[in-house]
Deep mutational scan, measured.
Amino acid sequence: NQASVVANTLIPINTALTLVMMRSEVVTPVGIPAEDIPRLVSMTVNRAVPLGTTLMPDMVKGYA
Results as ranks from 00 to 15, higher is better:
Asn1Glu: 15
Gln2Arg: 04
Gln2Val: 13
Gln2Lys: 05
Ala3Val: 08
Val5Met: 02
Val6Ile: 13
Val6Pro: 01
Ala7Phe: 02
Ala7His: 01
Asn8Asp: 12
Asn8Ser: 14
Asn8Ile: 05
Thr9Asn: 09
Thr9Leu: 12
Leu10Trp: 13
Ile11Pro: 01
Ile11His: 01
Ile11Gln: 01
Pro12Met: 11
Thr15Arg: 06
Thr15Leu: 05
Ala16Gln: 15
Ala16Arg: 11
Ala16Pro: 11
Thr18Val: 07
Val20Asp: 10
Val20Tyr: 14
Val20Glu: 11
Met21Lys: 04
Met21Asn: 13
Met21Gln: 05
Met22Gly: 00
Met22Phe: 06
Met22Pro: 00
Met22Cys: 03
Arg23Ser: 05
Arg23Phe: 03
Ser24Phe: 07
Ser24Pro: 07
Ser24Leu: 08
Val26Glu: 15
Val26Trp: 10
Val26Tyr: 09
Val27Gly: 03
Pro29Arg: 03
Pro29Ser: 06
Pro29Phe: 04
Val30Arg: 04
Gly31Ala: 04
Pro33Val: 08
Ala34Met: 12
Ala34Leu: 04
Ala34Gly: 12
Glu35Cys: 15
Glu35Phe: 06
Asp36Pro: 00
Asp36Trp: 06
Ile37Trp: 03
Ile37Pro: 00
Pro38Arg: 09
Pro38Tyr: 09
Pro38Asn: 10
Arg39Pro: 01
Arg39Cys: 14
Arg39Leu: 09
Leu40Pro: 00
Val41Cys: 05
Met43Val: 03
Met43Ala: 07
Thr44Lys: 08
Val45His: 00
Asn46Lys: 10
Asn46Pro: 03
Asn46Phe: 13
Arg47Ser: 11
Arg47Ile: 07
Ala48Gln: 10
Val49Ala: 08
Leu51Gln: 12
Gly52Glu: 05
Gly52Lys: 04
Gly52Thr: 02
Thr53Gln: 11
Leu55His: 00
Met56Pro: 01
Pro57Val: 06
Pro57His: 12
Asp58Ala: 11
Asp58His: 14
Met59Pro: 02
Met59Tyr: 13
Met59Arg: 03
Val60Phe: 07
Lys61Asn: 14
Lys61Leu: 09
Gly62Asp: 10
Gly62Cys: 15
Tyr63Leu: 05
Ala64Val: 11
Ala64His: 15
